Computed example of a mutant assay.
Amino acid sequence: MRWSDGIDDERLIVVTIRNEAPMLVPRAGSTARSYRGPVRYSVSPTALTQSRSIATTYKLREITGWPIGMLGVHCLVYELADGADREATLQRLQRDQRVESAQPLHSFQTLMKPSSEPYRPLQRNLDLLNVSEAHRWSRGEGVRIGIVDTGVDISHPDLDGRIADHRDFVSASERGMVAEKHGTAVAGLIGASDRNALGIVGIAPAARLYALRACWSEPDRDDARCNTLTLAKALVAAIEAKTDIVNLSLGGPADPLLTRIVQRGIDRGIVFVGAAPANASDRFPTSISDVIVVAGLKEQRAADAMLFAPSEDVLTLAPNGTYDFLSGSSLAAASVSGGIALLLAREPRLSVERIKALLAPTMQHEIEAPPTMDLCLAVTSVVRGGSCGR
């Protein structure tokens, strides 16, 4: 059971209240598996009183709450009363002096689909990116990558020893991380082992992976869903873990709360990578300044795209220790996250602008072929005496 089961998301809103003197929470909360789970986090008495007062004033039902220390707020999910108009209620809340912010509980989707041509040459994506040559100079050693996604198959042989930490912000199950398709594919593309004599090779096989489950698979669908609260908790966890890179292979509407959290991470030097959305209306995370946006090689008209990487028929990991060919800008974003790890392993203090400057000029232009990156050329730009074989 997910914590959204049994509740219509269209009747849910997210409200933040100033929490001036909260008790410090050492880690971002791993949410209860249903909205109705107990709140386990300390809140200032004033914020607690205000949250109850607001619920009474607007006839709301509090579903869950969570203090976000880095923003100095208490974040609550409320359910609207039967028949209440969500937009009108939000407008009233936004004018209420007790309220720091108010918005809908947004839904987000991952950006991947099954491959239609499963027999094309294996890992052609690595050849296009010149990854093998890049590995002569960097394998992403020591770089921390947060993967905010669905669950990852942490027992997959090609991820053995590769997961530094894993947390579930969707379910309260004690059975461990749920092995799901999208998160496993993204994790494999970024950091599958390269020295185990089996399977595939990740782009940054020596990076440290943080699997943060904020999305869940939908029955009979290729994509997965997330929402404002699950993503907020995973993003805060990634920031608290002091990750160097956060991969966001997902998209959805502009979200004020999530934007504030991402901006706080950017201010702390974390590099965020987002997948170019298929729909122009999907503005998170790609509309945020300094988020590196990545589109597939055949998606060069995607809104806000800055970089391009292979996204069609990419061989990667699948749950239950298997492999699959998949497509989508999710995979292009994961490729760039892995490529950035190769750079940061050699030059940890690179800014977002410097990273883009290093990657963009390496994009290879061939007749009737879209440009892609040469990761070896990018890495050797920060390695004295480095060279590439092609």
Rank of each mutant, 00 (worst) to 15 (best):
I154R: 06
A28W: 01
I68D: 13
T89E: 06
L248Y: 06
A280V: 15
A276I: 06
I355M: 13
V379R: 02
S4Y: 08
S42T: 11
L12I: 15
E79T: 07
L111S: 07
A55K: 10
L76A: 14
G321M: 05
D267S: 10
S311K: 04
L105G: 00
C388Q: 12
M373I: 15
Y323M: 06
D85Q: 14
V352H: 10
V291I: 11
T46M: 12
L93C: 03
N19I: 04
R268T: 06
G176L: 06
L12V: 13
L129D: 09
V152G: 01
D149N: 10
M177S: 09
P45N: 05
A204R: 10
R349V: 04
G161T: 11
N196E: 13
L229G: 06
V43T: 14
A378P: 11
R175G: 07
G251E: 01
A234G: 13
T243F: 00
T362C: 09
E299Q: 10
I63V: 10
I17A: 05
L212K: 03
A187C: 04
A224M: 03
E87G: 04
R221M: 09
G191C: 12
A102M: 07
I68M: 09
L343A: 13
R95E: 14
I245T: 02
L317Q: 01
I154T: 14
L343I: 12
A197D: 15
T184P: 08
R27Q: 14
V99D: 08
